[in-house]
């Protein structure tokens, strides 16, 4: 392709061509296959550059989050492995016997699960939309450092300009549970759980934990039962149902 072809490609992509020039361009695309192939590659290259530079902050945030989760996953696996090494079979047998004896005597006292056993949240990394970067970072930091009063205020501010954002609503609801504002939290959990978003099943799980904290076991079981079998929380949900019965 010649220089003027590339200039034409850019004019077409950025919609700077007038009506006649646009029609001529589209006709050439139909007739000239080399022109068509080069234009396709021009667009693909532009998409690559856009992802590389325009979405750079977002992509870096994803990479950072990935690294963090991968690291915590590695640590968990290492800890599990170390535990296996340190405990010899006879120690396990002794420990198991003690647990069985204590379990039989004290099961009545300790059998009811509590919210604190399950309220483990991964560190969040919010999706950047528009020009809210600073506020989003503050919200993430506050949430991840368990400063829930602050986090709630940041989520409120973010939701005033992005009122349909279900991701924010889910995290706000979790924050409200931590602040014991259960009614407001449950309204948000219901809204997110009723949606078709990727957050729906998480809202069911954390909604159930909210009910657990309120000691409303029937409502908690009802929510847990709605978590579908293919969801990653399903097994944990089933275990919790058994404990609550």
């Amino acid at each position: 392709m010649e220089e003027h072809d590339y200039i034409l490609f850019e004019e077409y992509v950025s919609q700077k061509l007038d009506e006649n020039a646009r029609i001529a361009f589209e006709n050439r695309l139909l007739k000239d296959s080399a022109f068509k192939d080069s234009f396709a590659l021009y667009k693909e290259t532009s998409t690559f550059l856009k992802n590389k530079f325009a979405n750079q902050t977002e992509r870096e945030a994803f990479k950072k989050n990935l690294k963090k989760i991968s690291q915590s996953n590695t640590n968990t696996l290492k800890t599990q492995k170390q535990k296996t090494i340190f405990f010899k079979p006879w120690k396990i047998a002794v420990a198991a016997s003690i647990l069985v004896v204590f379990g039989v005597f004290f099961s009545q006292w300790f059998s009811t699960p509590v919210y604190g056993d399950y309220a483990n949240y991964p560190e969040i990394s919010l999706t950047v939309r528009g020009n809210q970067n600073e506020l989003i970072t503050k919200a993430e930091q506050a949430f991840n450092q368990a400063k829930y009063e602050e986090a709630a205020s940041y989520f409120d501010q973010l939701l005033t300009t992005d009122s349909t954002n279900l991701e924010l609503k889910l995290y706000k609801a979790i924050t409200l549970v931590e602040l014991n504002k259960m009614e407001a939290a449950d309204v948000l959990f219901n809204e997110v759980a009723a949606s078709t978003s990727v957050y729906a099943n998480q809202a069911l799980w954390y909604g159930a934990l909210s009910k657990l904290k309120q000691k409303n076991y029937t409502a908690s079981i009802a929510l847990l039962k709605k978590i579908p079998q293919d969801d990653e929380q399903y097994k944990q949900a089933q275990k919790l149902i058994k404990k609550l019965f």
Partner: peptide, 17 residues
């Protein structure tokens, strides 16, 4: 979708599962 939205819960579940 979860990966594309950098959703920590989804990424965590991919690692676990």
């Amino acid at each position: 979708e979860g990966l594309s939205q950098n959703n920590s819960f989804v990424i965590q579940s991919i690692y676990t599962k």
